[in-house]
Every structure is written in C-alpha cells, then in structure tokens.
Amino acid sequence: MSADFTRAFDMALRGGPLPPGLIAPDLSEVARRFDVYRNNVAVSLSTALAARFPVIERLVGQAFFAAMARVYAEQDRPNSPVLHEWGQGFAAFLAAFPPLASYPYMADVARIEYARGCAYHAADGTPADPARFATANPATVRLVLHASVILLPLDYPAVTIWQANQPATVAPPLQQVTLQPETALIYRDRSFQVPVMAVSPADATFVSALQAHETLADAAAHALAYDAGYDPTPLLLRLMQAGLFLEPESC
C-alpha cells in the first residue's frame, strides 16, 4: 500500500472520489459500503467533539452541532489519537463561523469547556497538610497551586451562560443576563468534579499572583489595589478544601 493509496482513501473519506481498487461481491454497492467508513469518521469525530463541548451542543442543538463539527473537523483535523486534547482551536473557529455571528459569546463558552477538560486531565498532586498554613508567615510563604487551577478572562458573561446550561438546569430568559465580561475560575476538586465559577477582579488578581509564585502577602496586596476591603480568606478556604494547595515537593 503506497502513500498514494492512503491519500486517495483519505480524500474519499472527506467527499472525494472513491479510491481505486475497491471491490465487493456486488460492485454496484461499493459506494454504499464505503459510506460506512465516511460515516464512522464523521460521526465519531462529532461525538468526540460533543463530549468535549456539551454546553455548546446544548446551545446550538444536536443537528446544528453535528453539521458544524464536520466543518470544524475538516478545518482543524485531530493531529493525535488522544482526542481529549482535540478542540483547542474550537473557540476561535466558533468566533469566525459565519452562522454564529449573532452569538459572540459562544467562543467564550467553548474556552470554558476546553479549560474544564484540561483541568479534568491535569497532573495529580498531593494536597498540603492544612496545619502547614496555620503557622505560615504570609510575608514569606509561596503557595503551590494544583495544575488544574485555571483562570480565564472572558469578554462575555460565559460563566453565567455555562452555569445556566447544565443538564439539570432550565436556562433563564436571556434578558436576565447582563452582557459584561467575567473571569472564570476552574479547577478539579478532590472528588474529580470540575466546577466553574465567576470571580471578582480582586480574586482573579490574587489567584494570578499565587500562580506566579508570589508570596501570600504580595498576592493579597495586589488584590487590595483592586478592592480596598479585599479579604482573601473565603477563596483560600475554598481552594484548600478542594485540595488545591500542594506539598512543595510535589510541584
């Protein structure tokens, strides 16, 4: 089998003419039989994409999503068999997809869904003993955050839209959504759940400083510049309960 054969087969899967040499007991049925492969490729990729972007599928509907997935799979073909890594370009694709021009928030929702997948599969780490924090000096301690912690600035209220479109929820009327930017905080907790929450600019600044390995005192000082009354305690407790501060040696 030459590379030419593979290329011809691949082109045929994507709508080109049938590759040479195909046979079947009834030659008139060759095209119908080849369609099994065409269908397998298109449906399996669409299914993989839908598993990765369930809220986008819910927002646009199954039929629209399946048709759109075929277009996307042609423009941004998977480059590895590890399909949970596929779809990094989906948000940019949605932003430029003409039929969705009236729905500019779609790309931000896709960014959240892609980030959730990354958090779900992120490397494990051993949570630090909470007793360590009781005696820590904020001026010197540098916290090690779990690899699943992702901070995502968004142009649209995509966290609100994502939360309203979970399987068990009924989406609120659109006029109740204020069209303002949000920042998403995404992580994987101890029971492997991956919540998505909108955080304040001060919280975002604080987490961002921790990710940059600044000291606890410096991170709080940056946040205070956004909000003079900022108290990092509720966020610190939430992250600690989720097991997201790691023993330094596990970083």
Partner: peptide, 16 residues
C-alpha cells in the same frame, strides 16, 4: 490504519 499525513481519522480503516 487510522492516521494519514499527521491527521488522525478516528476509525479503523482497511488495507490491501
């Protein structure tokens, strides 16, 4: 086979 030219096709395809 399932890959060609760096693209992964996500199906088990036949060969001569």
């Amino acid at each position: 086979w399932s890959s060609h030219g760096g693209a992964y096709l996500n199906d088990l395809l036949p060969l001569p």
